[in-house]
């Protein structure tokens, strides 16, 4: 009961912050709302016993990726509010029914399919996953190949971003 109340609080905060991301006109306010969403999601991860990913969520998403976003917003000094062009005004009106349809559709499916989900007895017997040990074991055994590939990806991303953002010498 306590857990459900806690989840509802987190979910409300997350949805509110997510709405704020798209409603705010200044990118910096959007960025800080997004950090709020990430923090709430880290909370839900911890509720799901995935403590390691909860911490990593805060370190990587909120602590590194969003700092990068905020850095770029500050570097380009984007203070003016974005203005929508008039010819696209109708898109705003269209988006609301489409979003509503999508949400209703997905929610219907989810509730229909998983409302009778109960954890099977043999699943409950398995050890809980989500501590650093189980993640580390998984990464270095069954998922070694993708793990090593991500390091190459990161290297490529570093080189790529340096080349892209470098000012060309005249």
């Amino acid at each position: 009961m306590m857990e459900q109340a806690f989840f509802l609080i987190l979910a409300t905060l997350a949805v509110g912050a997510a709405l704020s991301v798209i409603i705010q006109r200044s990118p910096l306010y959007s960025a800080f709302s997004l950090i709020g969403v990430f923090a709430c999601l880290a909370g839900t991860y911890i509720m799901l016993k995935a403590q390691f990913l909860g911490a990593i969520q805060m370190i990587v998403y909120a602590g590194a990726i969003m700092v990068l976003f905020v850095f770029v917003i500050m570097l380009l000094n984007i203070r003016k509010e974005e203005t929508a062009l008039d010819k696209y005004r109708y898109l705003w009106l269209l988006s609301i029914p489409f979003a509503a349809t999508l949400i209703v559709e997905v929610l219907y499916t989810i509730l229909k399919v998983t409302s009778d989900f109960t954890s099977l007895p043999e699943m409950a017997k398995r050890p809980e996953v989500g501590d650093s040990q189980s993640i580390g074991y998984g990464l270095y055994t069954g998922y070694l190949m993708p793990f090593e590939l991500t390091s190459i990806l990161i290297l490529l991303a570093i080189v790529g971003s340096v080349i892209l953002a470098r000012r060309e010498k005249d």
């Binding site: 799901l48 590194a64 050890p127 996953v129 990464l139």
Partner: peptide, 22 residues
Amino acid sequence: SSFYREVSGQLFVFIVMTVAAA
């Protein structure tokens, strides 16, 4: 991943996070 007690879902998330950073 948490409901099925199967770690691979969380490993996907780990990789998604690195991809998001890149």
